[in-house]
Simulated scan of single mutants.
Amino acid sequence: MSIPMVDLKGQYNSIKEEICQGLLDVLESSQFILGPQGRALEREIAAYCGVRHAFGVASGTDALHLALLAAGIGAGDEVITTAFTFIATAEAIAYVGAKPVFVDIDPATFNIDVSKIEDALTPRTRAILPVHLFGQPADLESLARLCDKHNLKMIEDCAQSFGAAYGERMTGSWGDLGCFSFFPSKNLGCYGDGGMIVTDDDQLAENIQMLRNHGSRERYYHAVVGYNSRLDDMQATILRTKMKYIDTYNRLRRENAGHYSSRLDGSGVTVPFVSGDGTHVFHQYTIRVKDREKIQKALTAQGIASAIYYPVPLHQQEVFAADCAGVSLPVTEQVAKEVLSLPMYPELKEEQIDTICRTLLAAL
């Protein structure tokens, strides 16, 4: 039995008629950029997240980049974030001329350890950029208090957490700005690149609106140097179709995570911790194991996919070596040696999970 990490084709087939009709409607309308589908998606996502504004952009990386620019982060500033994430988080900080300052993670959630942040603050610190890794919200209440105390911006990296909540509020709505990715494999994914920025702040919203569209409030009149970063209507109609099912998709992910954990708990495998403070949406189901290479090899031999997110933390990447000389993040470094992500998607069947777990336990 071959089991992929994600089954995009299976999901497409289940909603194929709706997707194709939506795409045909856009083609017939011939409105492709900043058109009605994009505007409708922005309204729907703003309402879903509980904020006043949402702006479609070209990618999740662009969402982070433009959010930092809109918040006034620039050369000489420092932004505190996690080293246990995809490089786009720190790339966006570097794009604006600021310095990413990495702190360690919580060993249970893999999210930024809030207790480590104050020691990393300097007079140059302007913002905190938490990542809701693998679909589990960071400790947003504590982060919000910390930002208020030190007059810092909070920009949420929600690339892996669409549909997740902390308390009664959705991820993306706690910070000054929230940044989403619609990369195809995400919980809410399009069929190409795409992203979204959400905010409750009217001034930040105006900044984003200009920055994504060549610095323009009105066509051919440019107030600032902007960018060409707009979510097209073809992708927007795909996302609007999938939005109808996102809560069902995330519920199925949580159910699949429960099946995994019930079979693996007590086996020597550390299963994902689920904080009682938020709703985990399991973008990935990531375990910790001591003999990762052996287990991954056994899974591969049976046609079962697995992945390592992320084998080299950002503070140990060559690109950040000069700024991170002497930086030690012991929890991050240990976790990076032990994590292994197993197949996770709404269409995953319980019998497939049984096969994966039997293979994994036999390898142990």
Rank of each mutant, 00 (worst) to 15 (best):
F320L: 15
L299F: 04
A321I: 07
V335C: 02
H283L: 08
G326D: 08
R292P: 05
T286P: 01
F320E: 03
V281W: 00
V331D: 04
V271W: 06
V335P: 00
Y310D: 11
V269D: 10
R292K: 14
T286C: 12
Q334K: 14
L314K: 02
V339I: 15
A336C: 04
A307N: 11
Q334V: 09
G278T: 11
Q284N: 13
Y285R: 02
Q317Y: 02
A298M: 05
S275D: 15
A305I: 03
H280Y: 13
Q284I: 02
T286G: 01
E318A: 14
D291W: 08
A305L: 05
G303C: 06
V331G: 03
A321Y: 08
L329A: 08
P272L: 05
T279Q: 13
K294A: 13
A322F: 03
V312K: 12
V331S: 07
F273T: 14
V319L: 08
D291T: 10
I295D: 03
S275R: 10
T279D: 07
E333N: 13
D323I: 07
Q302S: 06
H315A: 12
A336V: 04
E293G: 10
P272Q: 04
G276C: 07
T286I: 06
A322L: 05
R288C: 14
I304A: 01
V327W: 07
I287G: 01
V335Q: 02
P311Y: 07
Y310P: 12
F320H: 10
H315T: 14
R292M: 07
E338F: 01
I287M: 06
S328Q: 15
E333Y: 04
Y285G: 02
V312N: 08
E293T: 13
V339E: 08
A298S: 12
P311L: 10
Y285V: 03
K290Y: 12
V269P: 07
V289Y: 12
C324S: 11
A298D: 04
K337L: 12
F273C: 09
F282L: 01
G326A: 09
T300A: 14
A307K: 12
V281D: 00
A301H: 06
